[in-house]
């Protein structure tokens, strides 16, 4: 169709049009290349990266916990270690960019907060130790086959609720309880997982779990009514999922009418009318990851360090709510409470 002369004219035109873009891309690449070859601030002190996926109070508590925990082991920020906190603002592409930047900076340790941050790091970082936290199901996230058999450079703190701890509380406060209840959401995988875990923990103590499904916020009130009516449920142990967290007041309302006390797995539950909340402390999760970090920095290999659960669960008691639910919280439990709402 075109003669060779016309072809070459076309090519020259194309190149002249694309030249500025190509030149800029080349320059930017060169800048990145030259600076990624030699890490900035090569210094003797340790460097840690903290990678968060989203900006939530949970992430912030985790970061605070990590830094405070490191301090307990003698690591003072900017004195004998430097820390960079990255947040991807819930943006997957940015998360990958962050992981690439983290790799080229040659950090000594990488903390990840939340599941996507752990996953992005797992895919690319095979040598530098990774310590995760705020991850509910690290095995499901792909960090390993089990808590003890896992990727060689990975260990961390799992933020799954303490189900047997909760069942123990039930046993202490209401020794005669035979049946507990919860509302769960079949379309949330974590909700289903938590329900199963709670059921298992309860059965070990001979307690039966009555679970009622709700799929939308509108169904929660009806499900709560159904749970409270004629099923013989003595205590509602509400698992922590998105749906029930959003419609928690509906559960409180139904249970108050039926005078059934509610135990919650979310920290704010007690404030909102539950008799008590027994929730994982994400600040403590940060401290726990710092403890793992200290062991790694002393030379231990993450490969031999099993995943752990957050070591501290915060107990908050709402005495008024307990009383109206017909419960007297024993003094022994009150003494262990982190705070008591009168």
């Amino acid at each position: 169709m075109y003669s060779p002369a016309e072809y070459s004219k076309k090519i020259i035109y194309s190149l002249s049009k694309l030249a500025p873009a190509l030149a800029l891309i080349f320059c930017a690449s060169a800048v990145l290349l030259l600076f990624s070859a030699a890490p900035v601030n090569r210094s003797q002190i340790a460097k840690f990266a903290i990678v968060c996926y989203s900006d939530t109070p949970i992430s912030e508590d985790g970061v605070r916990g990590i830094k405070d925990g490191l301090k307990k082991h003698g690591y003072e920020e900017n004195r004998n270690y430097k820390a960079r906190v990255y947040s991807a603002h819930s943006d997957s592409a940015a998360l990958n960019g962050i992981i690439d930047a983290v790799i080229s900076e040659e950090f000594d340790l990488i903390f990840t907060i939340s599941t996507p941050a752990l996953q992005a790091a797992l895919k690319k970082i095979k040598k530098t130790p990774i310590i995760f936290s705020s991850t509910g199901d690290p095995v499901g996230a792909g960090a390993g086959e089990s808590f003890t058999r896992h990727a060689a450079n990975v260990t961390g703190i799992c933020s799954l609720s303490d189900f047997s701890g909760m069942i123990n509380l039930v046993g202490e406060i209401a020794p005669a309880a035979q049946k507990i209840g919860t509302i769960f959401c079949p379309s949330e995988i974590n909700s289903v997982l938590y329900k199963q875990r709670l059921e298992k923990a309860a059965l070990e103590k001979g307690i039966k779990l009555e679970a009622v499904a709700a799929s939308t916020a509108g169904e929660v009130a009806d499900a709560a009514e159904s749970l409270c009516a004629g099923r013989g449920v003595e205590i509602i142990c509400q698992i922590a999922d998105n749906l029930s967290a959003a419609s928690f007041t509906a559960i409180i309302k139904a249970s108050a009418a039926a005078r059934i006390p509610v135990f919650g797995f979310v920290g704010s539950d007690a404030k909102h009318g539950a008799a008590l909340s027994y929730a994982k402390d994400y600040y403590q999760g940060g401290i726990d990851s710092a403890n793992l970090a200290a062991r790694i920095l002393k030379g231990e290999s993450p490969a031999g360090m099993p995943f752990e659960y957050i070591s501290k669960t915060t107990l908050i008691i709402n005495k008024k709510a307990a009383l109206s639910g017909g419960l007297k919280i024993p003094e022994s439990v009150c003494r262990r409470a982190d705070s008591i709402i009168e």
């Binding site: 873009a21 891309i25 990145l32 947040s87 960019g97």
Partner: peptide
């Protein structure tokens, strides 16, 4: 090309310690 160039700018910014916020 715009996609590539943009990613490069972001990578450089991250590399040189821009506050992720």
């Amino acid at each position: 090309m715009g996609s590539i160039f943009f990613r490069l700018l972001v990578a450089i910014a991250l590399r040189f310690g821009m506050n992720p916020n």
